[in-house]
Design a protein around this nucleic acid. Structure first.
Lengths: 342, 342
DNA sequence: TTATCTCAGGAAAACGTTTACCCAAAACTC
DNA sequence: GAGTTTTGGGTAAACGTTTTCCTGAGATAA
């Protein structure tokens, strides 16, 4: 494969000059520059990134740990991250952790081997598993940004949304419509939730709203289990509606879950929103295309991605930059799946 | 950062020996091996991948060009690919091409710079844009596998499904149910389709089925436009149903499109499947969770991903391996969105 | 015992860049 | 015009591995 040496020979200059032309790192007289560029063109020269990275001691690449690349929400996030990293001249290395601690660790090691300049970490829900990853990276002083789920125990960049407020606004809306029996359906395994976990925070927002409206929060109306999100939405809602027939509204912790809830309702002969109001979270494209169109709490996903890369690159370029936590707001989007109870 | 040198010093051996222990490339006596491993552990040593890649002249990384990371289907594919590449010890470099020729080219160059060992290319639909990418890679003798869309003009590995047969079986099923006026909704921009493009092939399968049943294929019942998939399904179906009220069934070229079609039907007061049958393609999880559950043509997506990595790695490991084209079969999955016409 | 062979492990040469350092010539300064 | 500064471009030393080649010691053979 043609190397910088070949180019130098052909252009009748030293390899240093070629490097300088290519990187614009020092003034080179126009005629020589011209010669070099012609040689590069003629030889179809592509600089060897491993060699460059080795010498430069940085790689212009960012590791991205994401729970599942094919999840409705996370794939959107991955898309946004890829776009903004690309725009900034960085190559992302994606890895689906799949809630598999071992795979996550292996990927972190892989990132370290590759000498990535930084890592974007969407902590695996549920549990505190990602703690080890974070510690491992911090130990090596690799810049980090946490996305989607807060981990208050670490002093690192974090980009999250105001999940509590999101849950609050959803419940508040339902309560104002007149609902008094509101169920919550989630797709998470562990009954013990962790502070900072989006689902926990959203549910906690619901509780607060109910408190504010003087309505009793019934824990038995919170259903969770460990299945695919849509699957869980379906089974969870079935269970919930069968065991508590007075429920008139369901807050699904995710649009994907909401889709499952809609199916359960339909199967039980309940018309949405006449017999049952359903509200989702995320505002994926899907939400506005499902029937009935889903009322949901929107996340500013584009903004999340951009902020994450901004913080991370900021820290990479000026290592003195102190870690920042950015909390973005959600927005209730009212569509067709919610109505006053009958 | 600690290097192999540090490890060697601590273990009182030469760096060559450390390398040998770590790579198992030559017999090393147990006691020395032990010493080395202890030193590695104690120093938390992580071998420098750029240096290794430079020296080895291969990187254990694979470039993956995918139209959109957040597309319902492609994100699934990305997920499967990541999984199987990871299992084989390769790191994928993903890039969303977004139907942007320039970005695609830049990514290909980036892959070349990184000296990826191979490339998995899901050609950007629509058009022949990816031709340049393929040529560029072939020129450099970089192993390639094309996925999802065939490009018969190239002698490279290809993994596709039998789209024609898929379209055929869908239409055949509708025809057997008694439907005679079948619309097709697609989400592609160009009216001129290319051979090998999934949408083209699927539609062609529909035509063949209708021919076989002696039913006239009406070109005016094929709707396509360039929008988001769900968006297009919605608008396309609206247009179709308004202008051709005798249509009793719609073949959506994608499950995502089908979701939009369902919404359009609902908005027009048409009950699915009583007034209108809808059939999708892909069999995403979504398909079985939407209401009504979608009849669809299933792609063996897991198999597609595994086959793609198998072919690619095969070629990488034995460069003599001749390019192969694997065509996988689809399977009609009958659910609730189809019924005989009234 | 001596000659040959085997083999564990070390020395050093690559791999392809970037960059610190150096030098000669040109450009100033007075 | 002599001394000083600037500057365009070359030389060579890194960066951290893997791997070829070599060596000396122990094993084997006669």
């Amino acid at each position: 494969m043609t190397s910088i040496k070949t180019v130098a020979q052909r252009a009748q200059v030293s390899i240093a000059t070629v490097s300088r032309v290519l990187n614009g790192t020092k003034y080179v007289s126009p005629d020589i520059k011209q010669r070099v560029l012609e040689a590069v063109e003629a030889l179809n020269y592509h600089p060897n990134a491993p060699a460059r990275n080795l010498r430069r001691q940085r790689t212009q690449s960012i590791g991205v740990l994401i729970p599942q690349l094919n999840d409705l929400f996370f794939s959107d996030l991955a898309y946004v991250l890829e776009k903004s990293l690309f725009a900034a001249g960085y190559t992302p290395l994606f890895c689906s952790t799949e809630n598999d601690e071992e795979k996550e660790m292996m990927s972190v090691d892989n990132f370290i081997n590759h000498r990535v300049d930084g890592v974007i970490l969407i902590p695996s829900v549920p549990g505190s598993k990602s703690v080890n990853s974070v510690e491992r990276l911090l130990e090596r002083q690799i810049p980090i940004v946490l996305v989607d789920r807060a981990m208050p125990e670490f002093q690192v960049n974090q980009v999250i949304i105001n999940n509590q407020q999101g849950g609050y606004s959803a419940a508040d809306y339902l309560l104002r419509l007149g609902h008094r029996h509101i169920g919550v359906v989630d797709a998470i395994g562990e009954p013990a939730r962790y502070i900072g976990e989006p689902g926990y925070e959203r549910t906690s927002g619901v509780q607060q709203a109910m408190l504010a409206h003087g309505v009793l929060f019934d824990n038995r109306l919170v259903i969770m289990d460990r299945l695919g999100k849509m699957e869980m939405g379906y089974h969870g809602a079935l269970r919930l509606l069968r065991q508590s027939s007075h429920v008139t509204a369901i807050f699904a912790l995710t649009d994907a879950i909401a889709v499952g809830v809609l199916r359960a309702a339909s199967e039980l002969g309940l018309h949405v929103p006449r017999d049952l109001s359903v509200i989702g979270f995320d505002d994926m494209v899907l939400a506005s295309h499902v029937t009935p169109r889903l009322t949901t709490v929107a996340q500013p996903i584009e903004n999340i991605g951009q902020t994450a890369t901004r913080l991370l690159l900021g820290q990479i370029q000026a290592s003195s930059a102190p870690p920042e936590t950015v909390i973005l707001e959600t927005k209730l989007v009212i569509r067709e799946s919610t109505a006053p109870p009958r």
